[in-house]
Amino acid sequence: MFRFFASRLLQSALALLIIITATFFMLRFVPGGPFTAEKAVTPEILRNLEAHYGLNQPLWKQYADYLGSLLRGDFGPSFKYPNRTVNEILGDKLPVSLELGSLSLLLALLMGIPLGIIAATRRNSWIDYCASTFGMTGLSVPTFVVAPLLVLALSIHMGWFNASGWYSPEDRVLPSLVLGFAYAAPISRLTRGGMLEILSQDFIRTARAKGASELRIIFKHCLRGGLLPVVSYLGPAIAGILTGSFVIETIFQIPGLGREFVNSAFNRDYTLVLGTVILYAALIMVLNLAADVAQAWMNPKVRLAR
């Protein structure tokens, strides 16, 4: 188990370094820079600006300096927001996105898993068909269609929620519901598939023969194995929820990391883009790692194969 964990950790660290390097050099080679956009600055001012941010140094030096300051946990100054560091901006925005993300994931699990279990135990009943329709809807109707429709219906017509913003607890409802719904669908499908697979196995028949109650069979015998596909899907789901929140944050005007990232890319705010990418990548990797460990813990096959 320890070796498995260590090799995964090493792999993540390597991937993170690749991401940092790739993003860093990509940013330096793209046409246009942070100071080319707005009002034309004189060459002299441009030189001063570049000197101020160290952009006149040779590229490898900039790269080394950046890595060095990263190791100290310093993401550098923002190019577009003078007097603000990237650390401050990320510190402002990350909690918002994390809140949205964890609420959505929670909702997705709370909706998806029970639905999948019920669908599997009542196979080919009306509730199974409802669940599969629900699953298909989640796969086929994108969040950026669902979200405006819900806003139109519940906010504008019914006036139950604010159409946008992130102030009161009610403001959390629509965004996390929409984002959670998108991932509840695949989770319910995976749960159903996993449960069906386990339910058809011999040891379940044995349990039935012993007279175990249906509830006991489901929760005691099936759940652990049946939820394996869901656990291995958690990694991609988390990544998807994090990036999916770009659109949700845009629609609901939520001051989170996703919107900031898209804006910073448009603004060519190099340090902010880099900082956001690194933060996202690190976040996704840590959570992926956690999902892997959970999977190994739940599934002896995975644990022993490594």
């Binding site: 993540s12 991937a15 993003t23 246009g32 990694g235 994090l242 996202y280």
Partner: peptide
């Protein structure tokens, strides 16, 4: 490794910059 990369982010960067 690529599975664990936030690829959508790279696609966004590519589209913005190029």
């Amino acid at each position: 490794i690529m599975y664990s990369l936030p690829f959508t982010i790279f696609v966004i960067l590519l589209m913005v910059f190029f």
